[in-house]
Design a protein around this nucleic acid. Structure first.
Lengths: 131, 131
DNA sequence: GTTAGTCTTGACGTTTACGTCAAGTGTAGG
DNA sequence: CCTACACTTGACGTAAACGTCAAGACTAAC
């Protein structure tokens, strides 16, 4: 298994991206599909990477940052020092993500507060309209 | 209170942004400092808005999106239908943020899994080196 | 009165992340 | 053989979010 590959068109439909975007990611070394003659064949590894790419984008990371993050995964058979460096970088990224989630939680809380306030204003207007 | 204003330079130091960025945000109608002659005077309202702007950027929102989000806050004395529309938009944004947090939590979980895996690989290498 | 510092408004430049042609290749169908 | 379709590689265009001058105004300090 894991031998199945996908054409660029299949990838585009599956992930709702354009061919241009996929080729751009390849140029930036975020994806490395197999080349058979001219055509590209995307592997399951490419699919996994693309998922991470799109997720990273949703979180506001640049493609350059995402490229570094992708190196954290798919370590392969690295040397010890290499693995330690990866782990170190991963821990830093982990801290970053956790902080981001905390800030997000704070933002959600503030928004909820604000919504409560607006609901009170609405209720107040309702009372005065009825009174 | 809340009468205190800040120069563009003070704002830049306080928020670690450039004057160019602040003027750009003003041009995009994200900020509206008081104009005294030529100079700008940023109010506490501007500070609050700038905080939201920078936070929004960290979450990957565009300035156009952030501008809409800013309208959710600072409702003022709107009509009932206006308030209802605001609340509606706020609820949608709330859903979006909560979903984002869930995805972030998933990403954190996956990263933790991966780190555990890398740690095991490291431990394994240690054993073989010692063995 | 001139130097230094902070502010102002243009206006062009830059980076990122693609979009959008143009022109060609290769394969399958009628 | 011709058409249609999916793919390819350039190469130029574009929107967003500023950066980076240039040139001038105004204020305080010496």
């Amino acid at each position: 298994m894991s031998e199945e590959t996908y054409t660029i068109g299949e990838m585009c439909k599956a992930f709702d991206v354009t061919p241009r975007a996929l080729r751009f990611y390849e140029q930036k070394e975020l994806l490395k599909p197999i080349r058979e003659g001219q055509h590209r064949h995307y592997t399951n590894r490419d699919r996994a990477r693309l998922k991470l790419i799109l997720r990273g984008k949703r979180f506001g990371f640049s493609l350059a940052e995402i490229r570094e993050l992708l190196e954290l995964y798919y370590v392969g058979d690295g040397q010890k020092t290499q693995l330690e460096a990866t782990l170190d970088a991963a821990e830093k990224h982990h801290v970053e993500l956790v902080e981001k989630r905390e800030e997000l939680t704070a933002a959600i809380g503030e928004l909820e507060e604000h919504m409560t306030l607006v609901r009170r204003m609405l209720a107040d207007k309702g009372h005065r309209a009825a009174g």
